[in-house]
Design a protein around this nucleic acid. Structure first.
Length: 748
DNA sequence: TCAATCCGGGG
DNA sequence: GTGTACGGATTGA
């Protein structure tokens, strides 16, 4: 058994840590689990702070002790380059240290300074991070995802805000077989319900509380209602401060924490996945984890359904927490794995940035442990950082398309060319990139073999951090170990590699379509098989520098190349893939989407008469009002409140607001409304007549060409395009038969 | 074209 | 006050 790398996993392997609470007074509460037992360890730690110079603490005089880790306030000079953060200030009480620095800085600058972050030349982190970095401990050593006691709870309420609604039900479950539904049929029972919830949590005593949108809904709602009833929200574990507090992290959406239990939100992890929706129900169906016989109740109907069919709502609520548990196992596992590496509490990781939130704390921990200075600020660049290349070589419909890409290009270049930050004399950055990559491959292989253990989560956690390496180098002053020149070298090498790929493909007779940072679309000669395509890619790969490899990334029957990053692929199995804003805009109306699907499929199959038919049929559906208002309506977001709009209205009238205004309706800022062009009336809310057909045919017939057919323009000659999308059925003098037309492409 | 800003999702 | 940051789509200069 190999010893885990201390730079990755921390230098103290204490197992079973499930929660850490620390404050600047130097007290750390560490809850550790062994089997069913949880013990609370009360630890002391010295608060620490990196400084470039001692100007702000000069006023302490002899009260600042040199090289004495027992003194109330101490300082050590660390080895490091001039201009680096070479002084490590430490204190028995971090509040006193911070106060001393702020006092000195206020005096020096002649204005009150209230935050260390308003000062240059310092590096500081929160108390828990200080403790974890200094002690070398991490969460969850030796534990599997389901070893901690995890409890899910979900509120059912009569509205979305605690000002207008109340809680009438709470569903709870945990990973020890517990399940319960608490209810408050009448409003006056709500305080008892809240007390009941707190009592269950205290009695079950879980390590982790989970829910979907916990931070954005359940917790704020619960806090709002508890406040209304003057109930102290004691969610924390005994031994620590009892309440819930806001985690200051500068984000617009607040997050909350309590002592002794990790509050984690599955929605944060889901948002990392770039799915079409982050909704619990949608994601659960996507992952196939929705329970058998799942009850679905529209949000606004839940309270009403409860009155008539409480049993159904109970089942619904329990299925919610069941789904959350299954979802958590799936999406929070990488954060759980990361918590074993990064010196950060578990609850921060689902929404922490991968670069400054994970990689950087690991870098700092290594420097702190080595007793080495941290980088100081370096002068900014005036030339902007140049990123990857995007180049369009051909537009139109191109047959036999192959996608090839350079696997993990930036991480590969970083490792192979040894590109790390110049301000990292200990070489921690490259060490982490190397070790994370090596271990990731190990876990990836183990996951593939189906070995026992959480290999998949480990490999995806490691991938997350490795992939943040390049972005971290170029992150500017956000990143302590940033290095613009290094980031430039990475992208420059990337451009060289891509150019080499493009050149080699072109030299072998391939038609280039589009190249983007680390991948390229090209067209192969007629009659080529996938085997030949893969051979070609292997051949080009052999020309590339060691450490990077070109891989086959799929093929398609044909591609419509429209604009950079806007294209459509027709796959071998008939699937149509639309990419880019031109093809998958959220504003797309149903009738237009349907037309596009049909027309694109025909165009990419070389069937121009089919495109013509699709157009005529869509037109016909409009003309004969086969489409309903709902099918032509589009959803518009109203960003201005009625008051705001009233203020700008005299200067500029906007159709969407006017539509509501005309009907004397009100709206909320941020609200989305479905609107359609009503014949003779202009833009009108859909709900006036959703199933009707009184839309403005002329408007939508014109929009069919200008808004949808126009996206096929590159695939036909201008003359053919005009003819295919000509309303009149009569052929013109110079028209040629549609059957004689073929899709076209041309070099850009 | 770019940077500021808004939103997600929850009942 | 345990004191800094999610990603994308959309909007405004």
């Amino acid at each position: 058994m190999t010893v885990p790398d201390p730079l990755l996993f921390g230098h103290d392997a204490t197992p079973g840590i499930v929660a850490v609470h620390a404050d600047l007074s130097g007290r750390a509460l560490v809850w550790r689990r062994a089997g069913d037992d949880v013990t609370l360890e009360q630890a002391r730690f010295r608060s620490w702070l990196y400084a470039r110079d001692l100007a702000d603490v000069e006023h302490l005089g002899g009260r600042l002790a040199w090289d004495n880790d027992q003194a109330p306030l101490g300082v050590r000079e660390l080895s490091g380059a001039p201009g680096s953060l070479r002084y490590l200030l430490t204190a028995a009480d971090g509040r006193q240290l911070r106060h001393s620095v702020l006092r000195g800085a206020s005096h020096r600058l002649g204005r009150p300074i209230t935050s260390l972050h308003d000062l240059r030349g310092y590096y500081s982190v929160g108390a828990v991070e200080q403790y974890l970095m200094a002690s070398g401990r991490t969460y969850f050593g030796g534990m599997a995802f389901n070893d901690p006691h995890r409890l899910q709870f979900d509120l059912e309420t009569t509205s979305l805000t605690p000002d207008t609604g109340r809680i009438f039900m709470v569903a709870l479950r945990d990973n020890r077989g517990f399940e319960q539904v608490l209810e408050a049929r009448q409003a006056h029972q709500e305080p008892a319900l809240i007390h009941g919830l707190l009592a269950v949590i205290a009695a079950r005593d879980p390590d982790i509380l989970e829910n979907h949108n916990l931070m954005g809904f359940d917790l704020p709602f619960l806090m709002g209602r508890a406040e209304k009833h003057r109930i102290a929200l004691t969610l924390g574990r005994s031994g620590g401060p009892p309440g819930v507090w806001r985690v200051q992290d500068g984000r617009s959406s607040p997050h909350w924490a309590c002592a002794g239990r990790e509050l984690v939100d599955t929605i944060d992890a889901v948002r990392r996945l770039d799915l079409p929706s982050a909704s619990l129900k949608v994601v659960s169906q996507l992952f196939g984890i929705a329970p058998e016989g799942r009850v679905y109740i529209e949000g606004a109907q839940v309270a009403e359904t409860y009155r008539t069919n409480p049993a159904l709502v109970r089942r619904y609520a329990l299925q919610d927490v069941e789904e959350v548990e299954a979802l958590a196992r799936r999406v929070l596992a990488p954060s759980f794995a990361l918590a074993k590496m990064a010196p950060r509490p578990y609850h921060r990781l689902p929404y922490a940035g991968t670069a400054t939130g994970m990689l950087e704390p690991m870098l700092v921990r290594a420097y702190l442990q080595a007793g080495h200075a941290l980088p100081g600020e370096i002068a900014g660049h005036d030339v902007p950082h140049q990123g990857g290349t995007v180049h369009l070589y051909a537009q139109g419909v191109i047959p036999r398309v192959v996608k090839a890409d350079v696997a993990s290009m930036y991480p590969s270049l970083i490792r192979h060319d040894r590109i790390g930050p110049a301000c990292d004399p200990l070489g921690v950055f490259l060490h982490l990139m190397d070790q994370l990559t090596a271990l990731r491959l190990h876990h990836k292989a183990a996951a593939k073999r189906g070995d026992p253990g959480e290999h998949e989560a480990m490999q995806s956690a490691m991938k997350l951090v490795v992939n943040s390496g390049y972005g971290y180098l170029g992150a500017g002053r956000m990143a302590l170990f940033q290095d613009r020149d290094a980031a430039d070298r990475v992208t420059r090498r990337g451009r060289e590699v891509l150019a080499q790929v493009v050149g080699a493909l072109r030299g072998r007779g391939m038609t280039l379509i589009e190249a983007d940072t680390d991948g390229v679309f090209f067209s192969t000669p007629e009659g080529w098989t996938e085997v030949q395509e893969r051979q070609l890619i292997a051949e080009v790969d052999a020309l590339l520098p060691e450490g990077v490899s070109l891989e086959f990334d799929g093929r398609a029957q044909a591609m419509l190349s429209h604009e950079i990053k806007n294209y459509v692929l027709l796959r071998g199995d008939g699937r149509l893939e639309l990419r880019g804003a031109a093809f998958e805009s959220s504003r797309t109306e149903a009738y237009g989407r349907e037309f596009l699907q049909r027309a694109l499929r025909c165009l990419l199959s070389g069937d121009v008469p089919g495109v013509r038919d699709a157009y005529l049929q869509s037109l016909h559906a409009l003309d004969t009002r086969k489409c309903t208002n709902a099918e032509v309506a589009s959803r518009v977001r109203l960003t201005k409140s009625p008051e705001q709009y009233e203020a700008t209205r005299p200067a500029r009238q906007e159709a969407a607001y006017e539509a509501l205004h005309r009907l004397g309706r009100s709206w909320r800022a941020g609200e989305k409304v479905w609107l359609y062009q009503r014949a003779g009336q202009g833009l009108t809310p859909l709900d006036v007549n959703p199933d009707g057909r009184d839309y403005d045919v002329k408007h939508y017939a014109a929009a069919l060409v200008s808004g949808y057919a126009s996206r096929l323009r590159k695939g036909l000659t201008p003359e053919d395009f005009r003819q295919v999308f000509d309303r009149s059925q009569q052929p013109g003098l110079f028209d040629r038969p549609f059957g004689a037309m073929q899709p076209v492409w041309e070099p850009v």
